[in-house]
Design a binder for these strands. Structure first.
Length: 333
DNA sequence: ACAAGAGACCTTAGTGAAAT
DNA sequence: ATTTCACTAAGGTCTCTTGT
């Protein structure tokens, strides 16, 4: 039993993860993702996880499931109907009398229709006093207000982690236990985050969703494109030459530029904009333009840098894949 | 549930400079 | 002249959090 703060507890016993203290039993892993598979045998692959029995994850559950989840109902309607479903059937007496003229929503309670109609207007009933957030749902505003406070409804008993969502704590605790329930069917990658898996699947695709307007760079993540633009094409120049008007956004470019002010003999690369003040540095630089690569004898890895190949070979050793020695570093022509 | 962003971690490549 | 160390830039990937 992992004790959470105040009245919340999470039990992990025989494969059952269950919250006690509150009634909600949300299972973030209820849904199957097409093309992906849950690693139900993951437990067997993880010898460090001693708390569960070997067959436990096949019965991985978060207590009793909420039957309402399976109905496609408006959230306000659904929230007030709790307890009116029995075995997934709505009682015959609860005929829906009020229909929304603007959409398919219908309810048997007039006040629910009134609340629903706010959805079709610009009127917002509740507004955050600290930011621009507004909503027609009081509960949503209450939840939003937590983001302005330091209050953490759920805290981990094993570390300093705290959050306001049960689901987040469940995921966090699964990380402590080294359990990954969602697995990529194309590689060894696994995670507990469905969206993360979706994003991971893009790495197996040749499609690049985002392209830089200023160069040939392409990637599948918007945040990577933004980072690329800031690093390479940022209009903000942080480094300025103290002798002239030259500006750039990295220290290396500035260093190279200052060579021109020092009356030093400057060596230019014929294939790029590289400059330096020593002949041997230029020669080493030219290696980066050559097609001479050093190849690892144990895998497909290649590098034109001896230090990197050494590091790589050491990794083979530490992984215990195969014993190796320096003679296995085979330069290619 | 989904989407997006921030940030962390890891890796590779390139480089300056010191050591050999 | 060559090797090695230390550092930085940059990209890929993943985790975590937040908002809708």
């Amino acid at each position: 039993v992992l004790e959470l703060n105040v009245k919340n507890e999470i039990e992990i016993t025989d494969g059952l993860i269950e919250f006690t203290g509150e009634e909600s039993n949300y299972n973030p892993f209820d849904e199957q993702i097409s093309g992906f598979e849950e690693t139900q045998n993951m437990k067997n692959e993880n010898e460090d996880f001693n708390d569960l029995s070997s067959s436990s994850l096949n019965a991985f559950e978060f207590g009793q499931r909420i039957s309402e989840e399976s109905f496609n109902l408006d959230s306000q309607f659904k929230s007030n109907k709790k307890g009116t479903f029995k075995n997934g059937v709505i009682k015959e007496s609860e005929v829906r009398l009020y229909k929304c003229p603007a959409c398919d929503f219908e309810t048997n309670l007039k006040k629910h229709l009134g609340l629903h109609m706010y959805k079709h207007s610009n009127v917002k009933l509740f507004r955050c006093s600290d930011c621009t957030y507004e909503s027609n749902d009081k509960g949503c505003l209450k939840k939003h207000m937590l983001t302005h406070s330091d209050v953490k409804l759920f805290t981990c008993s094993e570390c300093d982690y705290g959050c306001n969502k049960k689901r987040s704590l469940v995921k966090h605790i699964l990380n402590h236990r080294n359990i990954k329930l969602l697995k990529c069917f194309q590689c060894d990658f696994s995670t507990n985050d469905k969206f993360c898996l979706k994003s991971h699947m893009l790495t197996h695709s040749d499609v690049k969703l985002f392209k830089c307007n200023d160069c040939e760079y392409k990637c599948n993540k918007k945040s990577n494109l933004v980072r690329h633009k800031v690093r390479l094409h940022s209009i903000v120049k942080l480094f300025k030459c103290y002798k002239c008007e030259f500006e750039c956004n990295n220290s290396r470019s500035l260093r190279i530029h200052t060579l021109s002010h020092d009356n030093m003999e400057v060596y230019h690369c014929s294939r790029c904009k590289y400059l330096c003040n020593r002949k041997e540095q230029l020669e080493r630089h030219m290696v980066s333009h050559s097609e001479k690569y050093l190849k690892c004898s144990q895998c497909e890895y290649m590098s034109n840098k001896k230090e990197l190949l050494k590091k790589h070979v050491l990794r083979h050793r530490s992984d215990g894949v195969r014993k190796n020695n320096a003679s296995e570093i085979t330069p290619e022509k």
